[in-house]
Amino acid sequence: MPRPLELTSPRFSDGETIPIAFTHEGEDKAPPLHWEGVPAGTRSLALVVEDPDAPDPRHPQRTWCHWVLYNIPPGTRDLPEGATPDTMPPGIRQGLNDWHRQGYGGPCPPIGRHRYFYKLYALDTVLPDLGSPTRAQLLAAMRGHILAEADLIGTYEKTHPHVQA
């Protein structure tokens, strides 16, 4: 039986606190990610990082998107710490996060401890050039093409509540 798609980080385990270096209070760099179990027939991968607890985990009102990547080559198994277009494998395209910019934007919750879902999708297609899609546009383009998905969930609460995004 094939191994299920699994997403991990050497810097935090599923359900654990995301280290401050990967947040707005720290260096605001992307954590290193690793995955295994990419299913046969995968033509590309996509990654979305989102916070379903915005703005307040006691009264969530929206899902805040932190990172959008697509057309990750299927042979790729890692994204390096602090991944940027210069350090990622060729061919990867980025969409827009909810700060209306490309690239990773680290956790910066206004109140309380939020959950951050790193979602990896194995797709049966290479997506067309979507320009700089939002999370919703990417999810719509992937509809009907998802072979498998994996989540890595980290949490974060500001240590200095005065720091703004």
Rank of each mutant, 00 (worst) to 15 (best):
G112R: 04
R77E: 10
A30Q: 15
P74S: 01
L120M: 07
W64N: 07
K119H: 12
V38M: 02
P133Y: 14
A165W: 15
Q137D: 12
D53S: 09
P4V: 13
G82I: 12
R135F: 12
R113A: 01
P52N: 07
R43Y: 12
D86P: 00
K158A: 08
E25Q: 13
H162I: 05
P85G: 15
M1P: 00
T87F: 10
H59L: 08
V38S: 06
Y116M: 12
W64L: 14
I146C: 05
R143L: 07
Y156P: 03
N71I: 11
P85A: 15
L5S: 02
P19V: 00
A46K: 08
H34L: 09
I18R: 14
P57D: 00
M1C: 02
A21I: 14
G103P: 03
R93A: 08
V163R: 02
S44T: 11
Q164G: 01
E16I: 02
L96G: 00
K29F: 14
P52C: 06
Y156A: 08
T84D: 01
N71E: 08
I72A: 01
L79H: 05
T125A: 04
C65N: 12
R115L: 02
A40S: 11
R3G: 03
P10E: 14
F22L: 02
S44K: 10
G103E: 01
R135I: 03
D98V: 11
T155C: 06
P109K: 00
E50V: 06
R77L: 11
A165Q: 05
K119R: 15
W35Y: 07
R113C: 02
G154Y: 15
W99N: 13
P107G: 13
R143C: 03
T134M: 10
Y118Q: 11
R43M: 12
N97A: 03
V126M: 10
T84E: 05
P128Q: 09
T84V: 09
K158C: 08
M1I: 14
E6M: 05
R3E: 07
T159L: 11
S44F: 05
R11G: 00
T134C: 08
E81F: 08
P109D: 00
M88F: 11
T23E: 05
L45A: 03
E36R: 15
I92D: 06
L96I: 01
G131H: 13
Y116Q: 08
Y116D: 05
D151V: 14
Y104C: 10
D56G: 01
L130W: 13
L130Y: 12
K158M: 05
A141M: 01
R3W: 02
H100Q: 09
L120N: 06
F22N: 00
A21E: 15
L120Y: 00
R101D: 09
F12N: 04
R143M: 04
Y121L: 12
I72V: 14
R11L: 06
T8V: 13
D124I: 10
P52H: 13
V68F: 08
L5C: 03
G95I: 07
T63H: 01
V68D: 04
R3M: 08
A141V: 10
P90W: 02
G112C: 03
G131F: 15
Y104T: 12
E27I: 00
R115A: 04
N97R: 11
P57Q: 00
T84H: 02
Y156N: 07
T42I: 07
V38Y: 00
F12L: 06
A148H: 04
